[in-house]
Design a protein around this nucleic acid. Sequence first.
DNA 1: TGAAATGTTGGGGCG
DNA 2: ACGCCCCAACATTTC
Length: 483
Amino acid sequence: MSQLISIVWFRQDLRLTDNPALSAAAAQGRVVPVFIWSPEEEGAWTPGSASRWWLHQSLRSLAESLARLGSRLVLRRGSALPTLLELVRQTGAQAVYWNRRYEPAIVQRDATVKEQLRAAGLHVESYNASLLFEPWQIRNKQDRPFQVYTPFWNACRSFAPLPDKPLPAPLRLPAPDGLNDLPSLSLDALQLEPTIDWAAAMRRYWQPGEEGATRRLEAFLAQPIDAYDTARDRPDLDGTSSLSPHLHFGEISPRTIWHRICPVGRATEVRGGREVYLKELVWREFAYHLLYHFPHTTDQPLRSEYAAFPYRTDPAGLRAWQRGQTGYPMVDAGMRQLWQLGWMHNRVRMIVASFLVKHQLLPWQAGARWFWDTLVDADLASNTLGWQWVAGCGADAAPYFRIFNPVSQGEKFDPQGDYVRRWVPELARLPTKYLHKPWEAPACVLSDAGVRLGETYPAPIVDHATARERALAALATLSKSAT
DNA sequence: TGAAATGTTGGGGCG
DNA sequence: ACGCCCCAACATTTC
């Protein structure tokens, strides 16, 4: 057995299967797996409460998986570079391996870490574990990054080479002598979990970790995939894959999903629900592509003229939105699902985001920040893309005048009202006809359902038609000042 | 991966 | 039989 000792630095790749850094290290000799909690190095985007809850569970799962292979996950907290150098001293490691991340602050940090470790004489390699295509691989004919989705998708679907087949998990993970005596924090010492236990519903709904991710994928694939095209838009059904948090933490690889959906490997060969799902996966790739090439967009609009957009300041309005108390059942249902599950159906994300930005004229950055704190799948690339898309200031964005009507969206995508009844139980007894617009219900209908508007459920905080006119007027000032 | 306003068409009631 | 109007259904335009 070789005596070469390698450190595998786990980050957002909390899995054993299709983990190139882990496989490379295991092929070299003995492995020291480590996770370093260094939130201060994430710039302005330190993980939010829901993300930290998930991370705690996922680390526990990873530690158990490593223990089954005769290894041990070492936990540390602090700045990455000095922590890694200390580990090198303590283990005699000659190599450090990790899988890449793409957030602006992390790209910078990792470049420094790599340079300094190499300067210290270590062998250092990083790998792609979380994307089908590297953000710099996909270029348009002018050799520039894409800013529109459809041509990006066309470039990805015909890109050669195809995404690699997933690597198998290592069968054994030889530990260096003394791995068990290496100083490590306990998982609890990282203080990732909330001090008040608000995660009960999340525990019921999610199974963080690689095994839970695999089960979620298999459950999704057990459904008729041809229905995905329309079922994915229905928040009252289980039509989506719900893999987003597992993907964010790297508990499952997009390559694994790609090759399960598309066994021949070529996206040009699939149609129907399979193709639609691959396109959703590639939206995630597009988000990383944009974040990598336009790193300022986490806080600034991609279309710079939107920096002058006349957003309002309204702390009470923002709070009503956050708490699901806007008086629009579809919006409130979404915000309460988010609060309880740390997740919201994507169709409803578009509705609530449109409401915040267009009906309330509040800045998309405030919405992005709230999602960042409350989503278990909070992902800087996807979150940034989604909010800029809704606000109209991003890549391939919805035109600003595309304003969702929360009533007609509800009637269209939650036709029996199951979704609203589940998340806004105080309206559950209203007839479906009025469920998405309780202010139009006759007084006797409201009282029969036990609803008193303004008391048991809020009256709408803005009138739709008025808010729509106000949003269009705000857009007009923008295009005037831009010329 | 909008919604609302406006325009067009065609069936049917009715004088 | 015919013109007129209404209106639903659909298409197009506008925001």
